[in-house]
Design a protein around this nucleic acid. Sequence first.
DNA 1: GTCTATACCTAGATAGAC
DNA 2: GTCTATCTAGGTATAGAC
Lengths: 220, 220
Amino acid sequence: MSTKEGPQTSRRGPYAKSAERRRAILTAAHAVFAAHGYRGSSLQDVANHAGMSQTSLLHYFPSKSDLLLAVLNWRDSITGDGTAPPDPEESLSDAVLRQARFNEDVPGVLELYTVLCGEAVTEGHPGRDYFTQRFERLRRSYARQLAQLAGEGRLRPGVDPDTAAASLIALWDGIQTQWLLAPGSVDMAGCLRAYLDLVLLPEEDPERASAGALPLAPLG
Amino acid sequence: MSTKEGPQTSRRGPYAKSAERRRAILTAAHAVFAAHGYRGSSLQDVANHAGMSQTSLLHYFPSKSDLLLAVLNWRDSITGDGTAPPDPEESLSDAVLRQARFNEDVPGVLELYTVLCGEAVTEGHPGRDYFTQRFERLRRSYARQLAQLAGEGRLRPGVDPDTAAASLIALWDGIQTQWLLAPGSVDMAGCLRAYLDLVLLPEEDPERASAGALPLAPLG
DNA sequence: GTCTATACCTAGATAGAC
DNA sequence: GTCTATCTAGGTATAGAC
């Protein structure tokens, strides 16, 4: 369901203010949900963070679950998760590591994702469908990219693209949780890079291709 | 308490009944928390499942957070998570896969773990310390076992035991989440086995040791 | 569009009869 | 030990003045 669009959004005045208000609410909700989860947050908290009353908030988002879905979609647009098609110029490893470092640097992004994803497996959670579809889409996307690499001989023999796709996503999510609970003890990007180094083979220069080449290239 | 003789039930009756009641509450709380999470569950729900009033429940567990910690510790004793030292007779792979299949077969175990772990990263969640310590302990345990295997030349060259330990746990947690949201599309044990097959090398028969592999000092 | 006021509900926890 | 009744607090959502 698309969010409410004012019927008389004709000119500039009220529409601009309304869009600004909505953004303020989404920013606030992002922070509050990240800190306390969906069930642990109240609309009053969000409204306070956004500098308005709880009833004004409900004027823009008619219910708490509507607000949640809007926050999830807004998160996608911020992080590029799910919206950005894989850039053919960028390698899979580079894309994953760049995204991981980006998420690590933007406060609240990982907190929001992790807590909502955990909550989403419960019965009747309004974000359940979102995460189910997200995982399905991501598995397909990574599986396709890995299959493509397999066709180029860039996948380690014996590695199944579908399995590796699900595993990459799983590793990513799981290491985020550990990092949130012990940021100093876990190297998120390092774990992802190590896994990708295990699964992928370095691009071989056809002229230098030798039978005795080591399959593992130590990346600085 | 007083040594006066009480009713006939004063010796073993109440104790036995009390322990039984506590177990009934823990069973109920396990199911309810698994279905709705900690914040999404009410003591009334748990009490209904346990067949008693909400106030009677509070007689055994003085607060909701106390009940949560009791459920988490009870879960450890059921699944053996955190309590069972690694069996020297069983290989790391076998132990991981056996545990994964066990968790998959016992209803509610994965649901409970996943949702509580997600919730635990939020501020002020009573389960936060539990999960922080659990991850720390598990990382140490797996890292030690992997380092041992590395000493036996059973670890793929270039694999860091600490990184692999965190990654194994992360992959495990993450694949559980995906499995809960799409049981038919994800093969939990398959992903774990694939990862372990990537990281570990098959045990080499010393007589068949090839020149390509460098057998380090075979300690024990 | 924004607010106060409030309806209506449920929560966790307590008091005290039995 | 168990319950009913209740306290206190907080939740989502609605009504309606301005």
